[in-house]
Computed example of a mutant assay.
Amino acid sequence: MSRHHLQPKADQPHVVRATIGWDRPLQTFFAQVFFVTVDEPEEGEALIWIGTEPGELLTPEAAIAIVEPHAIVPEDLAVRLGDEMRETIGVKDGSH
């Protein structure tokens, strides 16, 4: 699994952070946006969390579109996410 933590945009004071990455077992990209809540003012709560079902987000661009309104997205993030996905093709979980 890959995971990238993104800083909120300056005009999003209610956002703590956004997280985006690749989940190999589910074969999906995922996107989370954590918002300030009364119970979690510093850590935030993931009120947006997409990519929890197998194959839900099939491209890096689909995941980036979810977090982009809320967080600063590096220009090369789509390429890095695509590389991280390709690096896991054919990888299996080990025996438990």
Rank of each mutant, 00 (worst) to 15 (best):
M1R: 13
S2A: 05
R3H: 14
R3E: 15
H4R: 09
H5N: 06
Q7R: 14
Q7I: 10
Q7K: 15
P8R: 08
P8M: 06
A10T: 13
A10E: 15
D11Q: 10
P13I: 13
V15K: 02
V16N: 04
A18S: 14
A18V: 07
T19V: 15
I20G: 00
R24M: 01
R24C: 05
P25T: 11
P25G: 08
T28E: 01
T28I: 04
F29Q: 04
F29R: 01
A31S: 15
A31D: 06
A31G: 10
A31T: 07
A31I: 10
Q32N: 14
Q32T: 05
V33Y: 02
V33Q: 06
V36E: 09
V36Y: 00
V38Q: 14
E42I: 02
E43G: 08
G44E: 11
A46Y: 03
A46P: 11
I48L: 15
I50S: 12
G51A: 03
T52V: 05
T52M: 11
P54C: 05
G55S: 10
E56G: 03
L58D: 11
L58T: 10
L58Q: 14
L58P: 00
T59W: 04
P60W: 00
P60M: 04
A62C: 00
I64C: 04
A65F: 07
A65I: 09
V67Q: 12
V67M: 04
V67D: 10
H70P: 08
H70Y: 15
H70A: 08
A71V: 08
A71L: 10
I72N: 12
D76A: 10
G82D: 14
G82M: 01
D83E: 14
D83W: 03
E84N: 03
E84C: 00
E87V: 08
G90T: 15
G90S: 12
V91E: 15
K92C: 09
K92T: 13
K92M: 12
K92Y: 05
G94D: 09
S95C: 05
